[in-house]
Design a protein around this nucleic acid. Structure first.
Length: 127
DNA sequence: CTTCTTACA
DNA sequence: TGTAAGCA
């Protein structure tokens, strides 16, 4: 996956080597190293660098961007975790929607809440 | 020639 | 962030 030397990435992102290495220090990207200790970047690294430029333009600082990616991988893990329990994204949305309706007391136990299968899903979700 | 690390008028 | 130095 990682085959691009820093020189190529510089041209592709219009960033200086200094900046690219600095963002690595800040753990915004994690390029691999080849046998000669040279940094090798993937296309995903390039995309991320381009993203970082946009965030910087939007006024975010390094730590702010770090938090964005942190929360991002956080949600990513939750999604995977739910999938492991047999719940698709649409299942989760449906369950969450039913919860709101019932908490508000605006809707008596409906078909969905009395459905054994949905109760089972709720229990899994509240793990 | 390209990249790496370290350091700083 | 830029840039120079000394290696690899």
């Amino acid at each position: 996956m990682s085959v691009l030397p820093i020189g190529t990435v510089m041209k592709l992102t219009d960033l200086t080597a200094r900046q690219i290495r600095y963002y690595e220090q800040q753990e915004l990207i994690k390029p691999l190293r080849n046998e000669g200790n040279r940094r090798m970047y993937s296309l995903n690294d390039v995309d991320r660098l381009l993203e970082i430029k946009d965030y910087l333009d939007d006024g975010l600082n390094i730590s702010g961007i770090r938090e964005v990616y942190k929360k991002q991988s956080q949600l990513e893990n939750e999604r995977k975790h739910n999938l492991e329990k047999g719940l698709t994204d649409s299942d989760v949305r449906k369950i969450l929607q039913d919860e709101f309706l019932n908490i508000g007391g605006l809707k008596p136990p409906s078909s969905s809440f009395e459905d054994p299968n949905n109760l089972n899903n709720l229990n899994k979700l509240n793990h």
